[in-house]
Design a protein around this nucleic acid. Structure first.
Lengths: 256, 256
DNA sequence: TTCGATTGCGCGACAATCGCGCAGCGCGCA
DNA sequence: TGCGCGCTGCGCGATTGTCGCGCAATCGAA
C-alpha cells in the first residue's frame, strides 16, 4: 500500500525473502508442494526452490516423503512469536471477555495489514464457529466492521487510493460489491467513530466495531463484536452495544 | 530429538535459518529488539542481525522506529499457511464441536513437535479462557493428556531417551516432577489407548485424550477434552467421556 | 515402448553476504 | 561538567554461499 523507499541494496537478504515466499506458497489449494510447483508459485528457480525446501525440512518446518513437501506445526512457532510479543492483543483480552459476556456474542480485536483485516484476539462462546474463526484469520477489510472502522482511521486520500479499481468478492447475497457503497460506509464510520455492518460476511449476523487508540491518538486496532441479528433492529442493536464498546474503548485509552 | 543426517552443505540456505531465528527471537520477555539484542539472542553478528531486521521490515513482517524493531501481524500469514494447508485439523473440527457440546468442556486437537505438544484445533465454550488458549499454543508434552497419549504412541525406546535427564517444571502443586511418574503415566496410556491427567496444567481441571490414526495406522494427532473436575470422580468422568472420544476416534479413522 | 515432464545432482561463476573497523551519538556516573 | 561505555549506521574488501545451467535417471500416461 505505502511505497517504501526503494531498497538499501546491501542490507537486503534475498534468501530470507525467498524462504518466506516458499512458506507462504503453501495454502488450501496447495497443501503439498514439489520443488517444481513451489518454484512456479514463488517465481524462483526450481533448483533454488528445492534448496529452500530442503533447508526448511532440515530446520523442521516442513516434512517430505522425498518428492512432496508439506508444512509442520513447527511453523506455528513463528506466529507464536507475534502473540507472545504483541502486548496490545493481550491487554484487550479481558475487555473482550467482558464484552462478549455482556452482549452475548463473539468479541474480537483486529488490526489492519495492507488490505486485509487480521483478527489477533478474540473471546466468545462461539456456538456457530463451525468454520473455526481462528486467531490470525484475515479477510478483505471491507467485509468486517473492524476493517471498515480501521480504514476510516486512515488518511482519506490513502483510502481513496485503496478503493481505486478494487474488486469486491461477495461472501453473502448482501455483500457490498460497489465501490461507492464501501466508500459511503467508510465515510459514515469516520463521522460516527463506529461502524456497523450487516450480513456482509455471514448471513444473519451483524458486526459493530470501534477503534482503539493510545493516549497519543495512534490507532492500534479495533474492537468488534459479532451478533446474531435475530429480530433486533439495527437501532436496538446499536443502542445496546455501543455504550459497552465505548466503555472498553475509553478504559483502554487509559492504559495504552 | 531425532538426529537427522548431517547436512548437504550445498543445499543449505544459511540466510533462511538466520532469518527465522531472528523472528523467533521475539517473545514475551523481548517484544522489541534492537540489532544488538537480536544478535545476542540469535548468535549471529550484530551487522548481520541488522540486515535481517531491515529485510524483514521491508517485507512488512516487522516495524521499526529506527532503533527498535517489533513484529507485525503479517507474521501470522506464515502460521496461516499451515492452517490453510493442513487438512487434518480442519477434518477434526466438526468432531471437536460435537465433543465439546456433548461433554461440556473444551475439545482440542493436538500434535507433537519435538518435546512440546501443539494445539492446532479447538472448539469449546471457553468460559475460563481468560489467558486465551490460542491456536498454535504449545507446552511441554508431559503437562497435557494429549501430549502423554502422543508420547505413548512413539517407539518406547525413543520415549525412554526423551525422558532421560528431563527437567519438569510444575504448573500446579499437582504437576508431576518425577521422571518415573511421567514414565508410568505414559505406559498406562500405551496400554489403555487413552490418557487422563488431573490438575497438571491448571487447578481444578482434568484432561482426557485419545490418539487419532489413519487407516494405515499412522498417528496424526490426538483429540483431548478439558473438563472442570467439580465433584465428579475420575471413574465417573472416564465412563462419561471415553465413549464419546472413542466414537470420534473411530469416525475419524474412516475418513483419514 | 515412447514421449513429456519430472526428479537429483555436479559444476563453474558470479554476486550476495559476511564481519571488521570507523565515527557519531546518547546516557549514566563520577 | 566531562569522561567513558555501549550503542548506532555505514563503508569496504574478501570469501563463501548461492545461483542456474545442463546432464542423466526416473516416473506415469498414452
Amino acid at each position: 500500500m505505502t511505497e517504501e523507499q526503494q531498497l538499501d541494496r546491501r542490507d537486503w537478504i534475498a534468501g530470507l525473502e525467498k524462504g518466506l515466499k516458499v512458506i507462504e506458497a503453501f495454502n488450501d489449494a496447495h497443501p503439498r508442494l514439489t520443488p517444481s510447483t513451489a518454484a512456479r508459485r514463488t517465481g524462483i528457480t526450481r533448483t533454488a526452490a528445492r534448496r529452500y525446501l530442503l533447508t526448511l525440512e532440515h530446520l523442521g518446518y516442513v516434512q517430505t516423503d522425498g518428492t512432496h513437501f508439506w508444512l509442520t506445526p513447527r511453523i506455528l512457532r513463528l506466529g507464536w512469536s507475534y502473540f507472545d510479543s504483541a502486548k496490545v492483543p493481550r491487554a484487550v483480552q479481558p475487555f473482550l471477555q467482558r464484552i462478549s459476556m455482556e452482549l452475548g456474542g463473539s468479541a474480537f480485536f483486529a488490526v489492519l495489514d495492507e488490505d486485509e483485516v487480521v483478527f489477533v484476539a478474540r473471546n466468545g462462546n462461539g456456538r456457530v464457529q463451525s468454520l473455526g474463526f481462528v486467531l490470525g484469520a484475515r479477510i478483505a477489510a471491507n467485509l468486517a466492521s473492524a476493517g471498515i472502522v480501521l480504514l476510516a482511521c486512515r488518511p482519506p486520500e490513502e483510502v481513496g487510493r485503496w478503493l481505486e479499481g478494487r474488486k469486491f468478492v461477495p461472501y453473502t447475497p448482501h455483500s457490498m460489491t460497489n465501490v461507492d457503497d464501501v466508500r459511503a460506509v467508510i465515510q459514515a464510520a469516520r463521522g460516527n467513530g463506529y461502524c456497523i455492518l450487516e450480513q456482509q460476511l455471514e448471513q444473519g449476523r451483524r458486526g459493530i466495531a470501534v477503534p482503539v487508540r493510545t493516549r497519543a491518538g495512534e490507532v492500534v486496532g479495533a474492537i468488534s463484536v459479532s451478533l446474531s441479528i435475530g429480530n433486533e433492529t439495527t437501532q436496538q442493536a446499536l443502542s445496546r452495544t455501543l455504550p459497552v464498546l465505548r466503555e472498553a474503548e475509553h478504559a483502554l485509552l487509559a492504559l495504552l
